[in-house]
Design a protein around this nucleic acid. Structure first.
Lengths: 194, 194, 194, 194
DNA sequence: CATGAATGAGAGTTCATTCAT
DNA sequence: GATGAATGAACTCTCATTCAT
């Protein structure tokens, strides 16, 4: 039974993700989910009591593999410069493939619950900072990059990416615009695209 | 009469601004506004038909004087370096004084209406880019700054600031964190705080 | 003053008539009238307290000259047969010229107030019956028509006309259909169109 | 379940019919229905979205068996003359038993929706015309009636009946008045009551 | 007289949530 | 577990009606 019901739980989360993706977070009603899942109203409540709980479950299933890139096998065999480019390209990809990215819903969720302790997001941010910082430090050590303050550089790059993400979701951003920004970012750590 | 009613209009906008500030955009109902204004249900509808209309009115009243800083009298008598610092300090201020900043509501509004052409925000962004670019170009000419691509530097700085704003509204950012980022940003255009 | 205000009263009635004509009776609101008249809300209330009062005023101004036809000068110089045709043609005209006929509003008004004594409409009906009956009696006396019971024939013809009116306002009736019915009606009193 | 809900649907229609009967069509609100049914606001909306939908459902349940009379078993064993009388008596009955007749609501409904294609009512009228025409034709063939144009006679009789119905709902009509009219109508097709 | 801003009652509609089956 | 009918709270919006100016 645990099996069966956990399967159903996954199914609901999957469908809910689609709904959150298209509608954002706040607009979504339990009714929307029920309809998307084609299950009964009461049935949904057996698994989740409200959209917040559901969205948190969606987030838990979500693997943000972007920062994983820096720990991947491929990364281990590449130079820091190549990895930085790899990382930024993955971000570009994420920004552009609006088709499968929850960011608006995530922003809405964070805004709505900004008073609560959102350790999940804090940790994510900090992890990403650490990974980037490490990368930059290595780059500097191996003399691929020039940077006096790798820790702040990492924060800075994440801020810039965040800014692009927001731009993408609001006034829009073109692939070319992202490329230019990536080139500029690379420049700030002394990297130049050949 | 036109006078009186325009006064009341302003009053409603003012109160509505407070509501949007504390509650964001989407959650706000006409009822909330009615209560905040202490007027009658129907009374509000004489002035605004829905929260969207109201929010747009709030936005119109909103003077984003931050970018005006660069055109102010004070700016004219200062060096580009001083002005850049001035501008970034103003942004810091804006980020920190959550008490009086509509950004969450604005983001929500933009997300919700992202399919529509939001020229207002596009223009705002572009104007800000232009002003910053001009500042940086002058800085470079007068040899206060070092920058090969002032246009992209302007965009980059705005992305970074946007990223900080989002961080402030989600996982939080400290005054000190902002200072560090500002220092770093200044570094990217060859400016060093003494 | 009596003059001025009675002029305004007439003006309101005129405009109200247009509104009732296009919208029927029950749907019409005081607001509709105010807008049609381009006067102030309060101003309208100086003259009429509600739509019922207004509609009654409209009705009072309304001259249903159709039955007058039978008393007109022209009628006096014509044969009963000609007059019957004249009368029915006038009715046809009225049925077709929807553009200027209040009937839907009148029906609605009567339905809504069917519990009240509607002497106005009763009298109208009875007057019309009398006029028609007199016409038929004359026709029979002068041997233009054949009818054993002119009183009932009059009632019958009015019922038939009423039926056509309703048909016109509901499922629709063509000019040709009316002609056929008129011919048939004439036949029932022994008249044949050459 | 399908069973249960269809039972409730019927129940609502039944209660709604009562409400439409007493209040006509346009005045009726969803709230009125809710109160008459003693169910919850939301409950009603599970079945019907507005009064128009409800009224249409009421109409669909409504069997206008009057014209069925002409196809009934009883009719098959009677002479055309008897059937005509039967039919007109049924109409009389319908006109008089105001307690159970929706006509005002129907008229209101038709007036309000007169711009739409109301095939329902058109078809009903045409079917009734056909049935009556057939009856008259038979009557003429079997020499019970005299009529040169049975088709138009049918239309004519329906107009007359419609006229009586309207009179009943507006200025009122007595049983005796209807009898006189019925006798007259029979006369127009050469039938005389013994 | 005339204006039109303001009020508040009331209709419409949608959903979160419960509960009998 | 699962269903979906039912409830009722909460919102939106429109007008009749009043009243200070």
């Amino acid at each position: 039974m645990g099996d069966k019901s956990s399967q159903k739980r996954k199914y609901i989360i999957e469908k809910a993700r689609e709904v959150f993706h298209t509608n954002g977070y706040k607009t979504v009603t339990m009714k929307d989910i029920v309809q998307a899942c084609e299950i009964s109203r009461g049935g949904l409540y057996l698994y989740f009591s409200n959209t917040k709980e559901l969205f948190q479950a969606v987030l838990e299933e979500e693997n943000d593999n972007i920062s994983d890139i820096l720990e991947s096998d491929r990364a281990k065999n590449s130079t820091p410069g190549e990895n930085m480019l790899l990382y930024l390209s993955a971000q570009k990809n994420d920004i552009l493939k609006k088709n499968d990215n929850l960011s608006v819903a995530v922003y809405e969720y964070m805004f709505l619950n900004r008073s609560e302790e959102n350790d999940l997001f804090k940790n994510k941010f900090e992890n990403e900072v650490s990974a980037l910082e490490k990368l930059i430090s290595e780059g500097v050590e191996q003399e691929w990059m020039v940077c006096e303050n790798p820790a702040q550089a990492a924060v800075h790059i994440l801020h810039t990416i965040e800014g692009m993400k927001i731009q993408a979701q609001t006034i829009g951003i073109s692939s070319k615009d992202i490329d230019k920004e990536i080139e500029y970012i690379l420049g700030t750590v002394g990297l130049v695209l050949e």
